[in-house]
Design a binder for these strands. Structure first.
Length: 272
DNA sequence: AAGTGGACCTGCTAGC
DNA sequence: TGCTAGCAGGTCCACT
């Protein structure tokens, strides 16, 4: 579910409220992707710092270490001052003096992992291979071009791999490639420098727009305040198989790459 | 070393 | 109505 815009929207919707709160208790539900890695009681009494984001990960600093969180495919975080009892898919509760932060994650591909710091394992290892932050100033066509050098896999899959640029998931990869006019099957290293410029620009624009729309709510995404996003209504190719391209009217195609759906316009998107 | 397929898990929908 | 197959926003790991 959550790509960079959804994770960032989530962060923004609870970070300020939780800042300075003291941890009262932790409740664990069913196992997530990885074990918490510390005794839940050891978090009691610690003060919560300001949540930050790296790729699709959130980092919640505490006095001693912090919590690295990932929403997986179906996860969402909720911040509640007057909490409901946990449901069957609520697998992590952080009770604090400012309210409850709760991870709801039916498929349990998400994770909450304690780490001493971002520079020590397990956080260090999980973040080690991550690529550039697309909304930071350092990201441009040159970075993309250099990162794609020697990569023979399709550009769509290279974007999803996350080691060149982070935060672009299955929805926004298709959307950005459409905006840039690039065929998703193009071998990554074959993208010219100018096309990399266009793609970098398209990625930034797509993510910024999605962020401004509050993310995409396909099934069940909610931010920490319980509000859904609206970007799904602005999608130009994702999920539009068989419908006319909004540019040229050609039916949008759906193909499978690396066991994931890709949507594109066979007319507007070319291999260069 | 880059690329591939399988694994993790649950819920929903379309089609018979 | 009920079953089944297929699909879903991610990414790690073992293997070639």
């Amino acid at each position: 579910m959550p790509e960079l815009p959804e994770v960032e929207v989530t962060r923004q919707s609870f970070a300020a409220q939780l800042l300075g709160a003291r941890v009262l208790d932790v409740r664990l539900g069913k196992p997530l992707r990885w074990p918490l890695g510390c005794a839940p009681e050891s978090l009691q009494g610690q003060t919560v710092g300001e949540a930050c984001r790296r790729g699709k990960y959130l980092w919640l600093p505490l006095d001693r270490g912090g919590l690295l969180m990932h929403l997986g495919m179906s996860g969402s975080l909720r911040y509640e001052r007057m909490p409901q009892p946990p449901g069957p898919h609520d697998h992590f509760d952080l009770w604090t003096t400012h309210g409850l932060l709760r991870l709801h994650d039916p498929r349990r591909f998400g994770a909450v992992v304690w780490s001493q710091s971002l520079e020590t394992d397990p956080a260090r290892k999980l973040l080690a291979a991550l690529g550039a932050e697309p909304l930071e100033p350092g990201f441009d066509g040159a970075v993309l071009h250099a990162g794609l050098r020697g990569r023979r896999l399709a550009i769509k899959q290279a974007l999803l791999a996350g080691d060149v640029v982070v935060g672009v998931g299955n929805i926004y990869a298709s959307e950005a490639l459409f905006t840039a006019g690039i065929d998703p099957r193009t071998p990554a290293a074959r993208l010219s420098r100018p096309r990399c410029e266009r793609l970098a620009q398209a990625i930034r624009e797509t993510l910024r727009r999605a962020l401004a729309a509050g993310g995409s709510t396909l099934r069940d995404f909610r931010n920490a305040q319980g509000h859904g996003g609206a970007y799904q209504d602005q999608a130009r190719v994702y999920g539009r198989q068989g419908l006319p391209c909004l540019n040229c009217g050609t039916p949008i195609r759906r193909i499978v790459q690396g066991q994931r759906s890709t949507y594109f316009c066979p007319q507007c998107q070319t291999r260069g």
